[in-house]
Simulated assay, not measured.
Amino acid sequence: MKNKPTVLIVDDESMNINILMDLLKSDYRLIAAKDGTQALQRVSQSTPDLILLDIMMPGMDGYSVCERLKASPDTRDIPVIFISAMGEVQDETRGFEVGAVDYITKPFSPPVVLARVSTHIQLCQAQKAMKAHNQQLEEQVQLRTRELAITQDVTIHSLASLAETRDNETGNHIRRTQYYVKALAEYLQLQGPYAKELPQGVVEPLFKSAPLHDIGKVGIPDAILLKPGKLDHNEFDVMKTHTTLGRDAIAKAEAELQDVGDEDVSKTSFLRLAREIAYSHHEKWDGSGYPEGLSGVDIPLSARLMAVADVYDALISRRVYKEPMTHEQARTIILDGRGSHFDPVIVDAFIVLEPEFQAIAARYQD
């Protein structure tokens, strides 16, 4: 009995209920109600798989009952078959308008009742099975997506850490600059002239791509990369190529994704942002930076954000060739670079976010 589908029969005439019960009792678990109010109570106690619903009843008629059922997310998917002596086209039309799936006229034809109840029970069961299958697929997709995101994050940090191991910087530099960029982007996303350039969904790929800003340093010779003193002109020219090396490596990855049909190398793609940051984070607002000498808003916004984050962290961090500066000293240099080295809007955001920058620096200190 437990495995049988449940059918609720609603009719104010006991004779009609008995007829239908005799027809259906061998294949279904049956519940009966004699009016609309009782029918709704029955449904609230135990959800049936199908309802056979009389239209003309005292008090609440079948149309009203059906409308109430379809208005609730808990009961809207229960198939309702109207049973009535009202056989006019407009009666059937009204029934379908309020959400019924079928219409059986009185007096009952046993083969018709059995066939229609069976058809709609099977259809309902198939829909439930499909819904459960889709839910399972969605959960599998979500799990796979989480796994891919974790793999992506680990890969990014592994690559970034590889670059850091060849430099005088530390792994926590990666973390700090990530969170500085995120803080700036989230602030500018809510106000100011760059809000439209930072739509929903762009902060996370910015956060993910930031660690790759110096990935090109893996191609710089140790004699230059690890030199404790100031680089000469020729050495500095070689050092500057880390921006191009980083850009080219990331561009190659983008091209390979496009070759295999991944069209999501879009405006919010972390690879695109990583390429911009790697190539342009040493450009300066006044055009005196490298590698192209871009100026103003011709420098990608992602790179302008990283410029402030990277310089600030370099200033407050210890290196083999220098002692760390205080926050106040670094703040003064950032302010002095407003409108020359750095985008003024981003510097203004940095000033607002000073406490957050200091908290990030403390949380991920070397």
Rank of each mutant, 00 (worst) to 15 (best):
S109L: 09
Q122F: 05
T6R: 06
L52A: 01
G289W: 04
D12P: 08
M60I: 15
A132M: 10
I220A: 01
E328D: 12
D153P: 00
G289N: 02
A251M: 12
D22A: 13
I277W: 06
L52R: 03
I277E: 02
Q358G: 00
A185D: 05
Q135V: 07
R94H: 12
V345E: 12
F108H: 15
T75V: 01
T75K: 07
Y194E: 03
S209E: 07
I83Q: 06
E356G: 01
G261R: 07
I51D: 00
I346E: 01
T145A: 13
P228N: 13
I19H: 01
A303D: 09
I9Q: 00
L206W: 00
I277N: 06
G36Y: 07
E354L: 10
P107V: 12
D22E: 11
G246Q: 10
A39I: 07
E92W: 00
K131P: 00
R166L: 14
E97L: 09
R275I: 02
H133D: 14
A71H: 13
V202I: 15
I156G: 03
K267M: 04
D74W: 05
P79F: 02
F350R: 05
D12G: 11
R175L: 15
Q127K: 11
I150V: 12
K227F: 00
F236L: 09
D343A: 09
A253F: 12
V311N: 13
D22Q: 10
S72F: 05
A362T: 11
